[in-house]
Amino acid sequence: MTISVLGAGAFGTAMAVSLSQNGPVTLWARDAEQVRTMQASRENSRRLPGVKLPEDITVSADIEDALAAKTLLLAMPMQKMAGFLDAHSETLAGKTLVSCSKGIDLSTGQGPTALIRAKVPGARAAVLTGPSFAADIARGLPTALTLACADHSEELQAELSTPTLRLYRTTDTTGAELGGALKNVYAIAAGTVIGAGLGDSARAALMTRGFAEMLRIATELGARAETLSGLSGFGDLVLTCTSTQSRNFRLGCSIGSGEGFDPSITVEGVATAGALNKLAHRRGLEIPVAAMVLALTERTISVDEAMQALLARPLKEE
């Protein structure tokens, strides 16, 4: 049966393009006007310009038509997912729901698979995450991602793999989704370092200490350390901390340089920084880099003050 991708942002569109190599795909967008434009031009000029939509992609604004598929990729902002699941919980029961979101739900503190299980108990929950940019996937550049599902999901792995998109599976959904969510926070920090002109050595140090924080909080929450050392953790951290294609990194650059940033662009790391610091406080965990990111995004501290606060921390063993 046709796979549906729910959400026609850059990543959702790119996944639809890649998966159309295997057969028909429905790409659903909420905005009917956007859908009409995409149907006429065969391109998502708003989110993924320059990439033609293959004929095997059906672009639709009909949610009931999109929900007819057995496998649904949820390519929507993390903070929109709970409302969507609530609105369509009955129809989604029995489906395989694969989250493509990287973040933590602010109202519940849950990651995407836990949120899916809570809102739609009859659905099979999975998460697709790892080091990837939409433009690379859409253009057929080699990309490797992590597919996490509580069962071993060999058939889902085969269904979502393409000649240029290689998936590695794991049953550690907690580790996979935390790696994808937390790295966004540290990408903001890395961008701030570069935007402020502090140099690549400072960025390398920050990435290393940020990864230590990721491991600390993820293992506290039940993740396996080896998952964080893989594609969905370390791999994604490296990509987003070193490329201007990352929205989180670009936001950090704007903070570091004092320049403005387009408020219409979704930057998941901002919400995640808030959720992460609340969680760490409840658990009694030290995450100084993430704490500085939260303060910077809330504009309660300057870049110079954040840098001095981190440099003034007590010397200790690595």
Rank of each mutant, 00 (worst) to 15 (best):
A158L: 10
L206G: 04
L294D: 02
R299H: 14
T146A: 06
P49E: 09
R209T: 03
A150R: 11
P121A: 01
L48E: 11
L311A: 15
Q34S: 11
E298W: 10
A138I: 08
I287V: 15
E33L: 04
E268Q: 01
R282M: 10
L215A: 07
D200E: 12
R166S: 04
A69G: 14
S243P: 03
M1I: 00
S101A: 15
G180T: 00
P314S: 04
A312T: 09
T174E: 08
L67I: 10
T26N: 15
G9P: 06
F84H: 07
A176E: 09
P112G: 04
F234I: 11
A181S: 05
N248Y: 02
V238C: 05
R169I: 06
E159W: 00
T37H: 13
G83K: 09
E90S: 14
A66Q: 13
G252K: 00
N184K: 00
R250C: 13
Q34L: 13
A10H: 02
H281D: 10
L276F: 01
A189Q: 04
P112Y: 05
A16V: 05
A273S: 10
T170W: 04
L74K: 12
G7S: 07
A280M: 02
A148Q: 15
M307F: 14
I287P: 07
Q110I: 06
C100K: 03
L228R: 12
A8T: 07
M78S: 11
A126R: 02
T174A: 11
A144V: 06
S101L: 02
G233H: 04
R139C: 09
G222M: 08
R203N: 09
K278R: 15
H281F: 01
L6C: 10
S201G: 12
S60V: 08
A212N: 13
A150Q: 12
T129H: 02
G103M: 02
S229D: 11
T242N: 14
A271G: 14
I194V: 08
A225R: 15
G284I: 07
T13E: 12
L27A: 15
I194F: 00
D236K: 01
L156K: 05
E213T: 00
S132R: 03
T208M: 05
I301Q: 14
T173C: 14
S60C: 09
T71D: 05
L106G: 14
G23V: 09
A212P: 06
F84M: 06
C100P: 08
A126H: 01
G179E: 04
V120P: 06
A93L: 05
S257T: 01
G9Y: 01
S18T: 06
A187D: 01
F234C: 10
E155W: 02
T146K: 01
I194H: 03
G23P: 07
L19Y: 07
A135I: 08
T244R: 15
R224I: 00
G222F: 09
